[in-house]
């Protein structure tokens, strides 16, 4: 059971990260800022799970990384959504909508 819950959490985090990368390529800190910004700090992603998640997604081929420069010329590792990644995101998004919609319905009815 613990494992399943963990999977769900990881899956959610992965979806969030993919979504954060949909509009543009970002570095790790940028992704974190973006998530915090959208969620208005209601949901905070910590580094301890973010970086392993990035590696996991890269291994699955959903994102790819490369070293680049920031606006003020610092070296940083940028992450970019791949084609496979954006397809995956669409699938998961649809699943999530279906799932959360169902949960909402149940919560409303009961």
């Amino acid at each position: 059971m613990a494992k399943r819950a963990n999977d769900l959490l990881q899956g959610t985090l992965d979806l969030i990260v993919l979504r954060a990368l949909q509009s543009e390529t970002r570095h790790g800190w940028g992704i974190q800022q973006r998530i915090n910004q959208i969620a208005e700090d209601a949901l905070s992603v910590n580094q301890g799970s973010l970086y392993p998640a990035l590696l996991r997604l890269e291994k699955r081929g959903y994102i790819k990384s490369s070293w680049g420069r920031t606006e003020n010329g610092r070296r940083a590792k940028y992450y970019e959504l791949t084609k496979k990644g954006s397809e995956q995101m669409e699938t998961e998004l649809a699943l999530w909508r279906q799932f959360s919609g169902a949960i909402n319905l149940i919560l409303k009815e009961v």
């Binding site: 570095h27 790790g28 800190w29 800022q33 970086y51 610092r74 940083a76 590792k77």
Partner: peptide, 17 residues
């Protein structure tokens, strides 16, 4: 080393913020 550099970058950005 890559990871460390990435961490360092993260810390610096956080500090700046």
């Amino acid at each position: 080393a890559d990871l460390e550099e990435e961490m360092q970058f993260h810390l610096d950005m956080e500090t700046e913020a």
